[in-house]
Design a binder for these strands. Sequence first.
DNA 1: CGCCCGACCTGAGAGC
DNA 2: TGCTCTCAGGTCGGGC
Length: 290
Amino acid sequence: MPELPEVESLRLLLNLAVAGRVIDRVEIREPRLRRLIDLQLSKALSGRSIRGIERRAKYLLFDLGEVVLLIHLGMSGSLTHRKAPRAFSDAEPAGGGHDSIAARLDPRHDHVRFVLDDSSELVYNDPRRFGLIKLLPRAEANAADELKELGPDALDEKFNEAYLTVKARGRRVAIKNLLMDQRVVAGLGNIYAAEALFRAGVRPGRRAAGLKRSEICRIVGATADLLKDAIGAGGTSFRNYLDARGRPGRFSSRLMVYGRAGERCYVCSTLIRTRVLGQRSSFYCPRCQE
DNA sequence: CGCCCGACCTGAGAGC
DNA sequence: TGCTCTCAGGTCGGGC
């Protein structure tokens, strides 16, 4: 699901929508995510104000003062901000509502609702329940198991040619798998690893250790450009990702290889191929990528 | 340590 | 229509 651009787009919208608001209460309808949600969450969060929202890799960190709320969307999670639920008499006539919010989200998978002091709510919806919602004491946030091993953010200056050169040294894994290893570089998933390699002109199956200096350099540059473009477009909606307003990302139409097996490369018209690497489908153009 | 694989879940789409 | 099969944006833990 959401990779760095989707989470970052979400963070920006949520900061506008809910920063400064106070959490009145938290309703947990389904605590069984990959790990059980702490049922004391409501008690621990009620009355706290949301100072701001940060991002590390694909994790959102809600700054609540003494504590930090860590949220990961897994493969299919979304977090949408909804205005106060309408009174029954205001409801849309049957068949009326079309465009709006979360119309595509199945309400059966609204697992957690954070009700705010203006009666709006933040709803966590996640059909596959691979996500994570966890509370951390502020002082221990950086040492949390989920965060302590993360490499530099893919948009960070620290993710540069020298760094990737060192990390690729002696590594026999495919470069795509290396890019998806969150301990090496944080934020890339299956879509953006494939897209970055297309932009860099490097095949996903190439062994990391066998890359030329110039290729490493192009991968780093392509990754940064790609992520900035994707964030600017509000991320990618391949299946059902929706942003905080319940709208799909606009980067989907700009994917060059992901999900395009058998279609023609937009650059050279060669058929896009697919190959499984590390149990994930990889897409590439055999002509544009060496 | 590096690497590979299955597990965790539900739903969409393809094929019969 | 309905069944069965495969696949899906991510981790995590175990085995070698």
